[in-house]
Amino acid sequence: MIWAGWIYVALIAILVCFQACMALGAPWGHLANGGRWRGRLPPAMRMAAIGQGALLAFMGTAMAARAGIVPDWPNWTFWAAFAVTIATTIANLATPSRAERFLWGPVTVVLTICALRLAFS
């Protein structure tokens, strides 16, 4: 079970870094939010990237706690992170942005597999 936690945390760390880069102005708008923006995100969406990064960090910590990597957190945090992981996977597989679908679709599928492993072990 701990392997699922470590994989989840590693992938979440990559996603947090991605969001931080987007917030700082990286020209990767086509790889997020349905590919709505080309190049740099507009200021409001750059602020949203900060919030998304914080949410991802919360999710990674909740999963790490479930795996026994960090001290326990309330059980509801795992289930909240689990639900957001599933929703994010569906969104990334259904996005109209081909680039986003091919980049983040597989990543979120692996996150879902890890979350399922943690949920049912």
Results as ranks from 00 to 15, higher is better:
residue 58 F to L: 09
residue 42 P to L: 05
residue 113 I to K: 00
residue 41 L to C: 06
residue 118 L to T: 09
residue 63 M to R: 02
residue 28 W to E: 07
residue 45 M to T: 04
residue 31 L to W: 13
residue 87 A to I: 05
residue 103 L to K: 10
residue 91 A to M: 03
residue 11 L to M: 13
residue 32 A to H: 00
residue 18 F to M: 03
residue 7 I to C: 06
residue 71 P to G: 13
residue 30 H to C: 06
residue 48 A to Q: 07
residue 11 L to V: 14
residue 94 A to I: 11
residue 25 G to S: 10
residue 22 M to V: 10
residue 97 S to F: 03
residue 106 P to F: 15
residue 3 W to A: 14
residue 94 A to P: 02
residue 71 P to K: 04
residue 121 S to I: 00
residue 79 W to D: 05
residue 94 A to E: 08
residue 10 A to V: 15
residue 75 N to M: 07
residue 97 S to D: 05
residue 120 F to C: 07
residue 66 R to K: 14
residue 68 G to I: 07
residue 87 A to L: 11
residue 29 G to F: 01
residue 85 T to H: 09
residue 106 P to E: 13
residue 101 R to Y: 13
residue 119 A to R: 10
residue 83 A to Q: 01
residue 35 G to P: 06
residue 116 L to W: 06
residue 13 A to Y: 01
residue 72 D to W: 04
residue 19 Q to T: 08
residue 88 T to L: 11
residue 98 R to S: 06
residue 84 V to H: 01
residue 32 A to P: 00
residue 119 A to M: 03
residue 34 G to W: 06
residue 74 P to Q: 08
residue 109 V to A: 15
residue 76 W to H: 05
residue 105 G to W: 03
residue 52 Q to G: 15
residue 41 L to W: 10
residue 101 R to E: 12
residue 121 S to H: 09
residue 2 I to T: 10
residue 88 T to F: 02
residue 92 N to S: 12
